[in-house]
């Protein structure tokens, strides 16, 4: 999974999965990039340092 060089604009993003909390469903879930691609969906990743801080 680790890449020697971080991704740059125009690179193809390797498939990855990540655990999630889904507020609309009050449930835990998973985000999967390959699933997004299969469903023809765009993805926006919005990183921030920590919960309980401002965004």
């Amino acid at each position: 999974m680790d890449t020697p060089r971080p991704l740059g604009v125009s690179d193809m993003v390797p498939d990855f999965e990540i655990n999630t909390y889904e507020p609309t469903k009050h449930a835990f879930g998973k985000f999967s990039l390959s699933e997004q691609k299969q469903n023809g969906r765009w993805s926006i990743l919005f990183f921030y340092p920590a919960d309980f801080t401002f965004v």
Partner: peptide, 19 residues
């Protein structure tokens, strides 16, 4: 040990278009 405030847009084909 924290992530910086990064925003990334990925197309349905899996290509990174904005950062």
């Amino acid at each position: 040990g924290l992530n910086l405030r990064g925003t990334f847009i990925i197309s349905p084909e899996g290509q990174l278009l904005n950062s």
